[in-house]
Design a protein around this nucleic acid. Structure first.
Length: 606
RNA sequence: GGGGGUGUAGCGAAGUUGGUUAUCGCGCCGGCCUGUCAAGCCGGAGAUCGCGGGUUCGAUCCCCGUCACUCCCGCCA
């Protein structure tokens, strides 16, 4: 029997097609058998059409229809028919018509499903991943994976239009462990040696600049053997790009144009032509994060000016030992309960804060506390928590912070990094709890002027905050050995809605400068040669000044899809634990495979 | 590596201050039904309450361990 090929997609037919004889191919979405007349919905990725088998249809046809079950794959031939007015389903795009079947071929049958192919289905992730092919049949997943495809095409369209060349780099490379753990691939031909899967094509794309491909890009798979998160997988995809003879402004311009094209084409959303720039220090001081969600205000403020002489020993102690006190004014939330504040305090403590101090701004009139707190101005007072220490200056403080009656004040006192980070985490939590960010909006920003080095307390040495090939900013170069912590790098992040979307830098192309960086992070020449010798060798042959960036494709699509996990926009993701329930990987291998590779498993640790 | 939440029928959930037939919706099986569209009505099957151990006369419930999913810290140049 010849297969009935489709003439239309399941979401395509409209009232204007009435009278046509058509064939649809798809999956049985639901069946409704009335004994006489029978209906079923036929679905493909484009939509759903109701098929009707009339009461007076041939008994053979009725029999086939009666035997249909969910997710049978079928071909239906029939006549498009306008529905009677009362039967029109305005919730369906095809709701004005139905297909009166004249022939139904069952192309394949389907066993009872582990979960329903339905927007309402909310199966656990491991089950969805085990049966990912079924999960992907849902309209929601179809939408997201197709969005991803659209984004990739928009990226290629824009970058190739800007004279970028797409170059593939190897998936098996030399292990250059510096940041994350490498995934290793044992070599059979050279037992005892290993390839690594790239954490990113970083060194290769820099070498491509030496090669004269002055604008390179690649949709690159990157692998990092670290614990996963909702926005992190063991393997992910970067829109990796690199350019020669550029400053960071040139890189920004390309990415702004690319994002504009992506959002325009894939979502029909118009982004600003340029994104605002926020120095790292300012981002930390105002938002307590180097990837702030700028869709809402709720900014951190400096409380140090009010600490001296307050008599509140905790704050005074922190300030006198060089720390800082940050405050968050939460408008209108003075009715927050102790329990809610304790929950926020737990958030702050997670990030190293010793506590979360609080008080509430109240109108002072009629307040029994007003006299004993010495506030006779009749304006505002600070009520509860640490309020009594600062109530005498309540009006002054409120004015300086822009706070008013009914506001909640939250404080963290600690070293600068902890105080800003911890209160920033509280800000993020409040943003979620109070739903301050409008869904469906996108706020991009460049974070610039990052420190080039960070001090590693555990190992007692400086290390590269980004990577070792990042150019220090001009004004720090001469004296950078004196105070590495003060050096700002020519590196930048692109953030959107509280996520780090991209990270990049202008690279060092001067071997002498590169050697100084190696020395600061404690790399001797031999170590540098062993790890990066091939790059340093390449840089002996006329390397151009260059820089680049690598936006994360998964996070980008996640944000565009309104999801909060990249698993939702990856066709075949791993679980948070790094497992793949569908193919059951990772898995043990045949001892013979190990033998060929010259590997022997260590006994399991007790 | 550490902390929080979750795990009850194929799926999603309820439940038990520790008590003998573990509940509901969807799905599945059988029957009825001429217009439904999350069809409806009647009947039925289906659960070692994640797994292992402990406490107890008795554990799905309490305790310990373990596995899985998930969120967070660490980690992620």
């Amino acid at each position: 029997m010849e297969q009935m090929k489709r003439t239309h997609a399941c979401g395509a037919l409209r009232a204007s097609d009435a009278g046509q004889t058509v064939t649809l191919n798809g999956w049985v979405h639901r069946t409704r058998d009335h004994g006489g007349v029978a209906f079923f919905n036929l679905r493909d990725h484009s939509g759903i059409t109701q098929v009707v088998v009339d009461q007076d249809a041939p008994s053979e046809l009725q029999e086939v229809a009666g035997g249909l079950h969910m997710e049978y794959c079928v071909a239906v031939e029939g006549t498009v028919r306008k529905r009677p007015d009362a039967m029109v389903n305005s919730d369906m795009a095809t709701g004005e018509i139905e297909l009166a079947a004249t022939r139904i071929d069952v192309l394949s049958t389907c066993e009872p499903l582990p979960f329903m192919i339905d927007e309402r289905s909310d199966a656990r992730d491991d089950l969805r991943f085990k049966y990912r092919y079924l999960d992907l049949r849902t309209a929601a997943m179809q939408r997201k994976i197709r969005l991803r495809s659209e984004v990739m095409q928009a990226v290629r369209e824009y970058l190739t239009g800007q004279n970028f060349v797409e170059v593939e780099t190897p998936t098996m490379i030399k292990s250059t462990p510096e940041g994350a753990r490498d995934f290793l691939v044992p070599s059979r031909l050279h037992p005892g040696t290993f390839y690594a899967m790239p954490q990113s094509p970083q060194l290769y794309k820099q070498i491509l600049m030496v090669s004269g491909f002055d604008r390179y890009f690649q949709l690159a798979h990157c692998f990092r053997d670290e614990d996963a998160r909702g926005d992190r997988q063991l393997e992910h995809t970067q829109i990796d790009l690199e350019m020669s003879f550029v400053s960071k402004d040139d890189v920004f311009e390309v990415v702004e144009g690319m994002m504009g094209n992506v959002f325009r084409r894939a979502l029909g959303v118009e982004l600003p032509a340029t994104f605002e720039r926020l120095p790292y220090d300012e981002a930390m001081n105002r938002f307590g994060s180097d990837k702030p969600d700028l869709r809402f205000d709720l900014e951190l403020q400096d409380f140090v000016p009010f600490v001296e002489g307050s008599g509140f020993g905790v704050f005074e102690g922190v300030v006198s030992s060089g720390g800082t006190v940050k405050v968050l004014v939460v408008p209108g939330q003075a009715d927050y309960s102790r329990k809610q504040i304790t929950e926020l305090e737990d958030v702050a403590k997670t990030y190293g804060a010793k506590g979360l101090a609080w008080t509430k701004v109240r109108a002072a009139d009629g307040d029994a506390n007003a006299e004993e707190t010495g506030d006779a101005s009749g304006g505002l007072t600070l009520d509860g928590g640490i309020g009594k220490f600062f109530a005498p200056r309540a009006d002054e403080i409120a004015a300086a912070l822009g706070a008013g009656d009914g506001d909640l004040l939250l404080f963290v006192a600690d070293g600068w990094k902890v105080a800003t980070t911890a209160l920033g985490a509280v800000r993020s939590r409040l943003g979620r709890d109070l739903e301050l960010a409008e869904p469906g909006t996108f706020r991009f920003a460049w974070i610039v002027d990052f420190p080039l080095f960070e001090y590693n307390e555990d190992e007692g040495r400086w290390e590269a905050a980004h990577h070792m090939f990042t150019m220090p900013q001009e004004q720090y170069i001469e004296t950078m050995e004196d105070d590495p912590g003060a050096v700002k790098g020519d590196l930048y992040d692109l953030v959107c809605n509280g996520y780090e979307l991209a990270s990049g830098s202008i690279r060092i192309h001067d071997p002498a400068l590169q050697s100084r960086i190696f020395r600061i992070v404690g790399f001797d020449e031999e170590e540098a040669q062993r790890r990066f010798g091939f790059l340093l060798e390449a840089f002996k042959y006329g390397p151009p000044p260059h820089g680049g960036i690598a936006p994360g494709l998964d996070r980008l699509v996640m944000i565009m899809a309104g999801e909060d996990s990249i698993r939702e926009v990856i066709a075949f993701p791993k679980t948070a634990n790094g497992l793949s329930p569908m193919d059951d990987s990772p898995s043990p291998v045949d001892p013979k495979q190990l033998e060929e590779l010259g590997l022997r498993l260590a006994p399991k640790k007790e």
